[in-house]
Simulated assay, not measured.
Amino acid sequence: AAYADLVALCQFLPGPASSQVGFGLGLMRAGWGGALAAWLAFTLPSALALVVLATMATTVAALAPLLQGLKIVAVAIVAHAVLGMART
């Protein structure tokens, strides 16, 4: 029941619910040290990868076609989500 409540709360809050649930689980199980460890293990690697890729994208011209393709895929994913929400 506590886990379900935590997930519901994290889905209500802005931001990535998965990171918030991990942080909350760490906090519940091991206090602030556990919350920090959960954040370091779950969120920090993604954040670092994002920073590295963003830096590379602005400095490596060969990545321009890849970024254009990712933009097209992002538009398609958002359009699919909007259509799915419109149906329900």
Rank of each mutant, 00 (worst) to 15 (best):
A47M: 13
L25N: 01
L25T: 02
Q11N: 03
I72W: 14
A17P: 03
T59Y: 04
G34A: 13
P14Y: 02
P65D: 06
L67S: 08
V60C: 07
A4C: 08
P16M: 02
T58Y: 15
A74L: 08
G24C: 04
L27S: 04
A30K: 12
A79P: 06
A4T: 09
P14M: 01
G84V: 04
K71G: 11
V60E: 09
S18W: 00
L67D: 11
W32Y: 15
G22I: 03
S46E: 04
A57V: 05
G31Q: 10
A17R: 04
L40M: 12
A17F: 03
S46K: 02
V60Q: 09
I72E: 13
L9Q: 04
A74T: 07
A4K: 10
V7G: 02
A74Q: 14
S18A: 05
W39S: 09
A54R: 08
S46V: 04
L63W: 15
R87G: 00
S18D: 01
V78D: 01
S46T: 12
V73L: 15
F12A: 11
G33W: 14
T88H: 15
A57S: 11
A74R: 14
A62F: 07
L40C: 14
L50I: 12
Q68M: 10
G24S: 03
P14Q: 00
L9W: 14
L27W: 13
F23S: 05
A74F: 04
P14D: 01
G24Q: 03
L48C: 11
A4Y: 13
R29P: 00
G34N: 13
V82E: 04
A49P: 00
L53R: 03
T43F: 09
Y3P: 01
C10L: 00
L66S: 07
A47H: 07
C10Q: 00
G34M: 13
V73M: 13
A49Y: 04
L13N: 01
S18K: 01
A38L: 07
L40G: 07
L53G: 02
V78M: 12
A61Q: 09
L63D: 03
L25Q: 04
A64I: 03
L9V: 03
G26Q: 05
F23H: 02
M28K: 14
D5R: 10
S18T: 05
A47P: 00
V51E: 07
T55G: 14
